[in-house]
Design a protein around this nucleic acid. Structure first.
Lengths: 304, 304
DNA sequence: TCTATCGTTGCCTAAAAAGCAACAGTAAAC
DNA sequence: GTTTACTGTTGCTTTTTAGGCAACGATAGA
């Protein structure tokens, strides 16, 4: 259900994609239809909203202005829908969480399960991705709250909570390095490494750590999912680099070991809970944020 | 140019009029068209927006919610249009002023003339009316700023400036009462009175003054325009009751005289400058508001 | 030079909105 | 009690708008 002109939704998507055809594909309409709506908007507003580049469209200053307003309106509309939902009793609110994969195994399920006792009708949409994508989703309003690692500070993003997360080497109990209580990075790299794939690696904490230590790592196994990385390590295929949260359950069962890095000063990452700066969070979301803050603060001691 | 769904504009008008057909008339569309849009909105939102009364429609709680949001969006849209206007250089901003008639003779023309030196492209729309109608226009966003007398305090209205205005008897120089430097209300009423007509009289300062003094006034001439009232007084038809602002020019030319009421404690009225509470005023409007404040403060000394 | 991709436009079809007239119900006036 | 004047609502019609398809001109990269 949309209360704004369909043309504005088109406009938002085109601004996001930077291309008429890509936007049209996402919107499941013909490119010509999208184009006409954009042209109509520009005609009626009397201002060009995009610069026409040979490879696509880029927002003009006026477009930037309109985009910001449209996104504000979309947030307004979401909030309104939620209030109306309460009125008609079908409190079917939806909280959209953009998170790093690390939290989807333990922390998020735990918090959400507890949350459901008080808000049984609130649904969730969880999207995992890297930090940049998470921030992007929060900025554009695709996500209500974001959980990311070492975020850059953006003007439209409001940081709600930040806790430290310690990275370390993860291995099967049979691994030679298991004998040591802490390991050095270079010692780890002497063994086969299980690393995130290139896409995931880019911008990751591990990349930063390696860069600081002036080391390079050639993965023996590369995988684009934490689940896979853990399974590889459990199978004894090599050493992985994760944080404690990633392997909380495996630690309990003794299936994997966590060994802090000797270079602990560079192995710290900031886990951040954030939301859009211009927005009052609806009730359910605000409560969830509080629960998440508690859960985040609770992990800090165990990480030391 | 409208960026919201046409249905929302219909909805706003229906909420304002309390009747489909009246709204349809104002919108220059058939009542059935308006009705369908409302039904469609209710269907898509899943909530009834109106209660159906035999004499028309009244907002439901959900409707109240939506109305507030729609009006917020309309204000947003106005602000956006103005910013876009600056970008395309045709800074054709428009300031809509709802004012009591008293200010349209001297104070407003003076301020606006001065204002035009700095903002030559800003247009004005001035609507006169009684205090209640002025507040209504500000609340609904039909006017950007309001100038009214003795306003009741509404939650959505923000008072920017208030100054005192002294009411008194106004008469031609030949009038018998002209000999006195101040007059009592009862003395005035011994002569033919020139009063606002019943519609204008209702809720006016004069009504309040008379009520306080427990007097009743039978008008010899009733008129619904201040211009007319002044002309009647100038022609020697009787005594009028106005404030100094109303007859500033005639005072200079000696065509009319102002005689303070002996009951000066009850003859005070508050002239208020107000705007909508939830709104950041655009640049031009904010500047105009400042000029108006200065002008209002300037009239206070002369009134004593 | 060829290819791929971009935005744009004319032509046609499908869908949505508006207009008109009539209906059913209630409130006030006579 | 009857009439009159409102109200919202609903088929049926026409008009308007949006969407889909194919083709065009232009530009960047292989």
């Amino acid at each position: 259900m949309h209360l704004l002109l369909p043309g504005l939704r088109y406009f938002e998507e085109v601004a996001r994609q930077g291309s008429l055809r890509r936007a049209a594909e996402r919107l499941h309409v013909a490119a010509s239809a999208v184009n006409r709506q954009i042209l109509k908007l520009e005609d009626e507003l009397g201002v060009p909203l995009f610069e026409r580049l040979p490879r696509g469209l880029r927002l003009s200053p006026a477009g930037e202005l309109l985009l910001e307003q449209v996104r504000q309106w979309q947030r307004d509309e979401r909030g309104l829908q939620e209030e109306l939902g309460e009125i008609r009793g079908s409190g079917c609110a939806e909280v959209r969480i953009a998170s790093v994969e690390s939290l989807t195994d333990q922390l998020l399920p735990g918090v959400l399960a507890e949350f459901r006792h008080d808000f049984p009708r609130v649904r969730f949409v969880i999207t995992t991705g890297m930090t940049d994508a998470i921030l992007e989703r929060v900025v554009t309003g695709e996500a209500d709250i974001g959980l990311c690692i070492n975020p850059s500070t953006l003007p439209k993003i409001r940081m709600i909570e930040q806790v430290e997360l310690e990275f370390g080497a993860v291995m099967a109990p049979e691994h030679p390095l298991a004998a040591q209580t802490s390991v050095s990075l270079s010692a780890c790299l002497a063994y086969p490494a299980i690393l995130p794939d290139s896409e995931m690696f880019h911008g990751s904490t591990l990349q930063q750590v390696l860069a600081c230590a002036d080391l390079e790592a050639a993965p023996y196994v590369a995988c684009n999912r934490i689940l896979g990385i853990k399974s590889m390590a459990r199978a004894g295929l090599g050493v992985a680099f994760l944080n404690r949260l990633d392997i909380a359950r495996e630690l309990v069962h003794g299936e994997l070991l966590f060994r802090p890095l000797r270079e602990h000063d560079i192995a710290k990452a900031r886990l951040s809970l954030c939301a859009h700066g211009d927005r009052d969070l609806p009730l359910a979301t605000a409560v969830l944020v509080e629960r998440l803050r508690e859960a985040m603060r609770a992990i800090e001691p165990s990480g030391r």
